[in-house]
Design a protein around this nucleic acid. Sequence first.
DNA 1: CGGTTTTGACCCGCGC
DNA 2: GCGCGGGTCAAAACCG
Length: 251
Amino acid sequence: MDVYFQNPNPFSGVDNIPPPLSSDFINVSDYLVLDDDVVANPNSNWSLSSETPESSDKAGSINDINVINQGFSDEIETSINNNSNNNMNMQVHAFHISIYFLADIQIYVVILIYILWTLLFDRKRKSRGMNETTVEVTPRVTFRTRSQFEIMDDGYKWRKYGKKFVKNNSNPRNYYKCSCEGCGVKKRVERDREDTRYVLTSYDGVHNHESPCTLSYYAPPTMSLVYSNEWQLQQQASANSSSSNYSTNTN
DNA sequence: CGGTTTTGACCCGCGC
DNA sequence: GCGCGGGTCAAAACCG
């Protein structure tokens, strides 16, 4: 499992947009595009977790990154590369801890848990009328980010299709679909019910297209102009929609 | 006018 | 079967 984060920094050169506050802006490449400050300060206050389709609402944070992938906790190794063209990348490598550092007995426990979990998952699939050849792969990744904004730029264009007040959370949960035709990725955004300073952003599925942000960054100058303008519009729209919120927090 | 947001209704799975 | 909670739909409103 390799997850690459890139940082085109869409804020650079954009007028009327407040400068990014430390750790308040996290963007997305596959899921996130990290801001300069986040990459430069690995200890800044952010976290990442992924969850199985059956275990929603379990996003948490262990140190910087927490990954719970299909029932296993994964050991994470992070590395930050700064290549020649100022395109900073963060590589996240995940290893199954069952092989990496568990003692022998614990390996068997993990294997047993895995078998039980697989059987349970298979039963759930069959109870839904899914046969053996039906593959249900809906990766859900949740980012827990300390931010004053619910809507953070993640490099993709989203269309809101629902809003729901969920139990035990006074803050609404917003549902978004990727606006790109044919892309079925969905996004769920809500304030952490336990600490409203944090925003939980869950992604269902994987984009089958490039982010407009990535295109902008790697495109030839003429293309870059087109996409950059799109980015500015998105950024300004986001800033306008939350301008009152921002103004109350900048003093 | 086209794209986005809002919001009530509807659907579905799950537990009792 | 029923109620509840979460997710989605779709029509109307909104906006640039």
